[in-house]
Design a protein around this nucleic acid. Sequence first.
DNA 1: CTGTTAGCGCCTTCAA
DNA 2: TTGAAGGCGCTAACAG
Lengths: 342, 342
Amino acid sequence: MPVTLVEVAARAGVSPATVSRVLNGNYPVAESTRQRVQQAVRELDYVVNAHARALLHSTSGIVGVVLNDASDPFFAGIARGIQGAAAETSRLSVICNSEGDPEQEFAFLELLRGHRADAVILVGAAPEDPEYLAEATARAKGMLSHGTRLVLCGRPAPGEDAPGAVVEIDNAGGSAAITRHLLDLGHRRIAYITGPDGRTTTTSRLAGFRSALAEAGVELAPDLVVHGDFSREAGRAGVERLLAADADFTAVLAANDLVAAGAVHALRAAGRRVPDDVSVAGYDDLPTAVDVWPNLTTVHVPLEEIGRKAVELAFGPSDQDSVVTVPTALVPRESTAAPAAG
Amino acid sequence: MPVTLVEVAARAGVSPATVSRVLNGNYPVAESTRQRVQQAVRELDYVVNAHARALLHSTSGIVGVVLNDASDPFFAGIARGIQGAAAETSRLSVICNSEGDPEQEFAFLELLRGHRADAVILVGAAPEDPEYLAEATARAKGMLSHGTRLVLCGRPAPGEDAPGAVVEIDNAGGSAAITRHLLDLGHRRIAYITGPDGRTTTTSRLAGFRSALAEAGVELAPDLVVHGDFSREAGRAGVERLLAADADFTAVLAANDLVAAGAVHALRAAGRRVPDDVSVAGYDDLPTAVDVWPNLTTVHVPLEEIGRKAVELAFGPSDQDSVVTVPTALVPRESTAAPAAG
DNA sequence: CTGTTAGCGCCTTCAA
DNA sequence: TTGAAGGCGCTAACAG
């Protein structure tokens, strides 16, 4: 149904090759001929078939992005950066929501490979399951050997020998920094609501928290760590569990800002004032951190920049695999304060 | 670099045609042959070249989504629905952020046409500029005549004769409903912070507000309508302008929840309690509506469902262009209450 | 400067 | 049940 180059050629009274040359502009064509061709292109409303072109070049101009859920503000931020950087080089970014399901993730990888994506960017925490790791590494090798660049984004490289570039977030560092912030305010009994179990991000953020406590010589009561995921609901449930267990804490550090938002709610519902009675801190500095009242103290993660960096690595000149670690920064706001005396 | 079907054929000791038949499964092949072919496919880690296939079928399996900004929760919600529905039919969704710029929007349309997208879904409010309308209508006709389905989502059809399917949001209706909610609580001096000027969504939400007031016989002071966009900042600035002008109001209705969140902030900063001194209401029921304190009274818009509906229209059996209007629903929460006496 | 030719990877007749 | 041949739309050689 769409117009083809041959039809344009016929209309302009030239050969297909000439039309192609006008379109691509990498070749001398007489001005008058060019005019006629462009005229015909406009009249027929012709657009080159990207597939036919991809067949020749074995490059498609598409960037695959595989993430848990693009409507989650964390992923949305990164995806935005990727999309922007890709668009600047006339590349199309294809977003695939894996819902955190490895099977779906692999299925999308396959689809993208079929479309000969120039690069695939895997965003977000990875399962720590060794079986997954093995499979992922194998897939990664497959993609690379078939000419698709692979970038891991927000997750560490699956192993020493695993190929591909990596944009890591300094999760442990940021987590330690915000923990020290709470310690500096005078908190000693800090509860922690984790992310989903068995994910790299969860582990490293928790590790940062523990290490900062250890460094300060503060012991962590085991009942102060409650498991959750990255949702508001987890924050609410986490605080409710802490309160039900009558746990003794003056601050809550949450795996991310959504969890922190949920925690603030639950605390308020239980009649505890934030930060007067309990301080709450989050992570990621999502846009919603300033919707929460009091505004969340959190750790800024430059999401959009991470996305751009990933594209840069994907198409950068460097042929060797590189690892970039993006720094994080403490953002003190109103949800944290010194603990009440006593 | 990637493996081709011919190589698989060679490895399996059969002809390319046979491999193709095994892959597509629409044709009888001897069981033993099938086995050998599948073996070869696995060994070589072969994936069909989607471009070569697209060349034959003139269908690509991709759905283009053009929106302002996928990291905006409104668009993110719709995009999520689209992506889910598309994935269920093995289609890839390509997200393009136009940043609200018509030129970029058209550029993406061009790109998507080049990729022979099976359908293009245009999401979000459209400029009301007649020049834009004309251009958009022309483009739409072009796409359709070249075999790409077009669905407008969250914007009205550009005109009577404009082609394509439409998923409309009942903006005027929802806006009228929430206005009545405020009226029922006893508010008479309601300020309104609008969306960006000259956009269909802005206009229809404002119209709903006005019509509900008119219906109730309440006159609207012109200084109570302040212009903004769909951001938190606009909400903040809007309230500050109202306060600076010493405007007389007991409630603020915002164009969406982000604006409402900003409004709540500014009111609190000015020492006005919500809802005791001033009620605030939003629109869209974005996830962040419950992060705001007090939780926002708003109008629920089924974003994900809208996305799914759009895909349905795009690939549904119906050949005629259809218009679906998605209903909205009032969600009363804590940010609205009866005005203080006096 | 322009036209002709061949082929990218695959699928679909048509024959065998 | 399988193979051979042609062509989808385009571009990169190679002539002219």
